[in-house]
């Protein structure tokens, strides 16, 4: 039984500051090549290694990250 996490990012509120990218212990988050409606390169999940530690959610200045965790 493995613990798997997932994050959901509110893309339109994200300002692409990259603080979540720097604190993620599993390098799950990266800034997208695409931009949102304000022109920011928003954060997105790039692999399935998320452990649901919620570090990204805690440091996100705009509170755009929602974190889920489940035992699969």
């Amino acid at each position: 039984m493995a613990i798997k996490g997932a994050i959901v990012i509110d893309v339109e509120r994200c300002k692409g500051c990259g603080v979540c990218v720097s604190v993620c212990p599993k390098q799950v988050i990266a800034l997208s090549k695409n931009v949102n409606v304000k022109g920011y390169n928003y954060a997105e999940m790039v692999n399935e290694d998320c452990i649901g530690c919620a570090s990204c959610g805690m440091v996100c200045p705009d509170g755009v990250i929602t974190v889920y965790k489940a035992k699969l």
């Binding site: 996490g5 997932a6 649901g52 755009v64 699969l72």
Partner: peptide, 16 residues
């Protein structure tokens, strides 16, 4: 990337 098995209200860990 969106995992429907994990993203459920009962698995919520952190939200604003």
């Amino acid at each position: 990337m969106f995992n429907e098995e994990i993203v459920k209200p009962e698995n919520l860990v952190y939200k604003k």
